[in-house]
Structures are given as structure tokens and as C-alpha cells.
Nucleic acid binder design. Structure first.
Length: 299
DNA sequence: GATTTATGGTAAT
DNA sequence: TTACCCTAAATCT
């Protein structure tokens, strides 16, 4: 479910409901019970996102922070009070008289102090959904790297917030093969990717969906729906069906289908440990190495 | 009922 | 590079 756009959307929704309020905290599942008790009833200041990380910040100097990372399968359901009887494993439930939020299946849910929050953020690259993320340091590192840009884009130390769906879509929209070494992009190529990433993620934050296809490239019948924000009930359900319905992509998850622009068969391969998708015609240049995979970390 | 999958990340090898 | 982590829902048998 979660790339940066989802987490930022959540931060906004949670701040609106819990910011500046005293919030009950509990762990119906039990695994976060001790920590929840510590912040139970405390006043939340705000909920902040950096890339794919979520921070529930409490009021008061040195007050603890709840750090959540949803990982692959995690999700947060936000709703109006009264919260329903807990069903399944709810790691953390936040609750006021008017709203509740359930955190399920997070990779990380921990109580930390503000210092630790700052340290975590310091390890991440600029958040593409920040007001004015500075690309200078990232540009420099990419320009010196022989690692494929498709792998670099997933490195959160460089690009905080980009995930697997956006990386493929981003590269398609910029006409860049995922296998292009970072150094071969050139400054202009890098800047184009950077700005396009910001645009796409901002769009996702606005609509709640990964819809990256230009109107003209969609069949007539789909044009209207693709630009509309995701229906609240679909977003709340978070089901795979709702997610698939909320997705209009050029190449992501379209292996073997014809490219929406040129008709060539969309390709898939493994890069950076995840499935990557591309159109061999619209994204010319470096191609998949014949010998299995040449992944890598930052070079 | 069992297995697979997911828009992620880390630790071990 | 692989294994593994958490969990829910989809897909299998």
C-alpha cells in the first residue's frame, strides 16, 4: 500500500484528527501495549511524514514519538468514532471522542525520543514531498554512480518516498531505461527525473491513487475516473482490489501487455531486488544485462 | 484450508 | 544475493 504519497496523506489526515488533542492509545493486539500505555491520553502535537516513515509527535519538550513504518503489507485505517470492536491484529489504536486510527501489520512501530527521530530522518535522502527538497547532494552521488538508475531510485538514502510502482512509472514518463547507469543520465536527465518524481508523488498525495497516465493515453471510458480522487470507502478498505482499481499505469504490473503509446510489449525484470517494468521502445538505451541481474547498492 | 502476494527494509551470507 | 520479518486479502486446491 504505502509509498511516500500514502504516508503523507496519512500524516495530514491524522494531524487533522489528533493534532493538539489528548489521544487515547492502546494495543488491542498486545504487542505495543507497554509503549501505548506510556503515551495513552497524552497530547499529540502533530503527525509528520518523511518519505515512507510516519512520526506521531507528542507535545512537550523531549516528549516521546511513535515511529511507524508500514513496510509492504502494513496499513492504517482512519475512521469516525466510535471505533469498532477490534478484529484481527491491531498493533496500535489511537482514539478520541470523534475519531480513531488503527495501525495494522507495520514493519516498525516503536516509541522513540526526538533525538532518535532526527537521526532516522538524517539517514534518509530528501523527501520528494517536502516543500523544497534539495537535489544537489543526490545529483552528485547519482552522477558518480555506475549503478542502474532503477536501483538507485529505490534507495531511500537518496530518494525518500519513491517505491516500486513510482520508480517504473517515473522512468517510463522520462523515457529512461531502468538499466541506465546513474552517471549516464547527465545533469539534465537527473533534474527531469527529480521534478517528475515530485510531480507524480504530489499527484498521488492529492488523489490517493497511483495514476500516472496522461489523459490522452487512456481509453476514453477511463479518462474521467483516472483523475478523480480515490473514493473514501475504497481508501479505507485498503484491499488489493481497491488498490488495483485505483491504479492506472504505463508499465507497472503490465508485463506482456502492449505499451499504451507505442504498442510494444511491456518488459519486466528484477532490479534492486524488486520487479521492474519498462517499454523497450519508449525507454531506449541500456538494456537488461543478459547474465541474470546486476543489482547493487549505491556505488 | 493452504499458499501466494504486496506500492518495504534489514540482516545474514 | 537470499532469507526473513508482519499481516490481510486474494488465489490456489
Amino acid at each position: 500500500m504505502p509509498e511516500g504519497h500514502t504516508i503523507h496523506r496519512l500524516a495530514t489526515a491524522l494531524t487533522a484528527r489528533f493534532g493538539s488533542r489528548e489521544v487515547r492509545a492502546s494495543s488491542p493486539q498486545g504487542r505495543f501495549a507497554e509503549q501505548a500505555a506510556i503515551v495513552d491520553g497524552a497530547r499529540v502535537r502533530q503527525v509528520r511524514a518523511h518519505g515512507k516513515h510516519l512520526f506521531v509527535e507528542y507535545a512537550g519538550r523531549g516528549a516521546p514519538v511513535v515511529h511507524v513504518h508500514l513496510g509492504l503489507g502494513g496499513r492504517v485505517v482512519v475512521g469516525q468514532a466510535p471505533a469498532p470492536e477490534p478484529r484481527g491484529a491491531i498493533r496500535l489504536r489511537l482514539e478520541t471522542d470523534s475519531a480513531y486510527a488503527d495501525v495494522r501489520a507495520p514493519t516498525v512501530c516503536e516509541l522513540i525520543d526526538p533525538r532518535r527521530e532526527a537521526a532516522l530522518i538524517a539517514k534518509l535522502g530528501p523527501d520528494l514531498l517536502a516543500r523544497a527538497p534539495d537535489p544537489a547532494a543526490v545529483r552528485r552521488r547519482v552522477s558518480r554512480s555506475r549503478v542502474a538508475i532503477g536501483a538507485l531510485l529505490l534507495d531511500q538514502r537518496l530518494f525518500a518516498g519513491i517505491g516500486n510502482a513510482y520508480r517504473s512509472e517515473l522512468l517510463y514518463r522520462c523515457g529512461v531505461s531502468p538499466w541506465t547507469p546513474g552517471a549516464d543520465l547527465g545533469a539534465d536527465g537527473f533534474d527531469e527525473l527529480w521534478e517528475e518524481a515530485r510531480r507524480l508523488l504530489a499527484d498521488g498525495r492529492r488523489t490517493g491513487r497511483v495514476s500516472t497516465v496522461d489523459r490522452a493515453d487512456l481509453p476514453r471510458g477511463q479518462r474521467r475516473a483516472a483523475r478523480r480522487a480515490l473514493a473514501p470507502e475504497d481508501e479505507a478498505s485498503g484491499s488489493a482490489v481497491a488498490r488495483a482499481r485505483a491504479r492506472e499505469t504505463y508499465v507497472y504490473k503490465r508485463a506482456g501487455l502492449p505499451c499504451r503509446r507505442c504498442g510494444a510489449e511491456v518488459q519486466t525484470g528484477s532490479l534492486g531486488g524488486r520487479d521492474v517494468y519498462w517499454c523497450p521502445t519508449c525507454q531506449p538505451g541500456a538494456s537488461e544485462p543478459a547474465s541474470a541481474a546486476s543489482d547493487g547498492a549505491v556505488g
